[in-house]
Amino acid sequence: MTLRLSRRHFMGSAAAAAAASSVPLRASAATPFTMQAAWINDAEFAGYFLAMDQGYYTEEGLDLTYLSGGPDVIPESTIIAGRADLALTTPDTTIKAIAEQGAPFKIIGAQYQKNPIGIVSLVESGITSPADLVGKTLAVPPVNVISVEAMLKINGIDPADVNIVPYAYDPTPLIQKEIDASLDFTTNVPYTIAQLGGEAASFLLYDFGYTIYNDTVVVTEQTLADKRDELVAWLRASRKGWVENNMDTTLWPAKWADTHFAGTGRTIANEEFFNEAQKPLMEHPDGIFAMTEEGIEANLKALREVGIEGTREMFDTTLLDEI
Rank of each mutant, 00 (worst) to 15 (best):
V232G: 06
Y169F: 15
A43D: 08
W39T: 10
V306M: 09
R266P: 00
G263H: 12
A160K: 06
S147W: 06
D226F: 10
E149Q: 15
I157W: 02
T259D: 07
F185I: 12
G70H: 07
L138W: 04
T65E: 14
F261N: 02
K279E: 01
Q195A: 04
D158H: 03
Q113R: 09
V148Y: 01
L320H: 12
K106L: 08
D207C: 10
T90F: 13
V219I: 02
G209V: 01
R26K: 15
A277M: 10
Q113M: 09
I175K: 09
L231T: 05
I164R: 02
G12R: 15
H284W: 03
S22K: 15
S22E: 13
A290M: 05
G156W: 00
I108P: 01
S147Y: 11
V218R: 01
Y56M: 15
P32N: 07
P141K: 11
S182G: 14
G198N: 03
F274W: 14
E272L: 11
I288A: 02
K255Q: 13
R266T: 09
V73G: 09
E309F: 00
H9A: 13
G310A: 02
V134F: 09
D215I: 02
L319M: 11
G209I: 00
P142N: 14
A262T: 10
P32V: 10
L25R: 13
P130C: 06
N275P: 05
K177Y: 05
L235F: 12
L62W: 05
T94P: 01
M314E: 00
G307V: 02
E230V: 09
P171F: 08
E76V: 05
D53N: 06
R312D: 06
R228K: 14
T223G: 07
H284A: 08
Y210C: 00
R83P: 05
L67Y: 03
V23M: 14
V140M: 08
L122H: 02
N299T: 00
P32T: 05
P159S: 05
R7T: 14
L235C: 06
N41D: 12
Y112C: 03
R266W: 14
D215A: 14
K96D: 12
A298N: 13
I146W: 11
T292Y: 03
W39V: 06
V140F: 08
P166V: 06
L196C: 08
E294V: 04
G156I: 03
L231E: 06
V306G: 00
S6L: 07
F203K: 04
G12Q: 15
I164V: 05
T192M: 15
N246H: 14
D170I: 11
A139C: 07
L88K: 07
I80T: 09
I157K: 02
S6W: 11
T128K: 15
E297A: 11
V143M: 10
L303H: 00
A15K: 13
D53H: 05
L62T: 03
E230R: 13
D85K: 08
S6F: 05
P253V: 09
A201M: 01
L88P: 01
A302F: 00
D286S: 13
E76D: 11
F185K: 13
I175D: 02
F273Q: 13
A131D: 09
F10R: 15
F33Y: 11
T216G: 01
L231R: 04
A19G: 11
R236L: 11
S13K: 07
S6H: 12
Q176G: 06
N41C: 13
G82L: 07
E305F: 03
A257I: 09
G198D: 03
I108S: 03
G295P: 00
Y213R: 04
